[in-house]
């Protein structure tokens, strides 16, 4: 049994459109006095929420050993094909016998989807909240293992953009370069 949907018959006032136009004008006028939402970026920095997907980092164990075992799950999962790993036998005794000799991420190719983070069986690669890491050359935007470990040191204890770090924030660009 078909349902008969009764369409709305516009009244005379509706057809005139003027009340609707007035209501529209009132909406925009109300916004005129609303508090604006802009964050004045270089001066103020947006503090990203938990789970924001920004610059990558490579985690370390408390004793300083890199967690990564160079299984290349991240590079296999990567849809942008931006992770390049050269594995090798680990120089540490005991435990995992493999570690990344080189670990490069091409940040210009990366789409920050977070698949690497999900694929990682060792919880070694993570995306941090850092979003301002622009640079001048393509080469500078390929971050290597040392850079990724340094990002870990910068972000392990607290949000990178909390007040304490803000003065340092402007220097991060160059310090994490290859």
């Amino acid at each position: 049994m078909a349902t008969i949907v009764k369409s709305y018959e516009p009244t005379f006032w509706d057809k005139l459109y003027l009340p609707a136009l007035m209501r529209g004008l009132i909406v925009t006028f109300r916004h005129f006095f609303r508090k604006n939402v802009t964050i004045q970026y270089p001066d103020q920095k947006h503090i990203p929420p938990e789970g924001y997907r920004g610059l990558h980092r490579l985690n370390k164990y408390p004793e300083g050993r890199i967690k990564c075992v160079a299984c290349e799950m991240c590079s296999a999962a990567c849809p942008a094909d931006c992770i390049h790993i050269i594995p090798g036998p680990s120089p540490w005794d005991g435990g995992k016998e493999r570690y990344p000799v080189r670990f490069d991420i091409d940040l210009l190719r990366c789409i920050f989807c977070g698949f690497c983070e999900m694929a990682c069986p060792e919880e070694a690669i993570e995306l941090t909240e850092i979003y301002d890491f622009s640079d001048y050359t393509r080469d500078d935007l390929v971050i290597d293992k040392e850079g990724l470990l340094e990002v870990y040191d910068l972000t392990k204890d607290q949000n990178y953009y909390t007040k304490k770090n803000l003065s340092k924030a402007s220097s991060v660009n160059t310090s994490i370069d290859t």
């Binding site: 925009t28 006095f33 604006n36 802009t38």
Partner: peptide, 10 residues
């Protein structure tokens, strides 16, 4: 400026 204010911008 006015258009910015109407869009909650600066």
């Amino acid at each position: 400026r006015v258009s910015a204010f109407m869009q909650d911008r600066v």
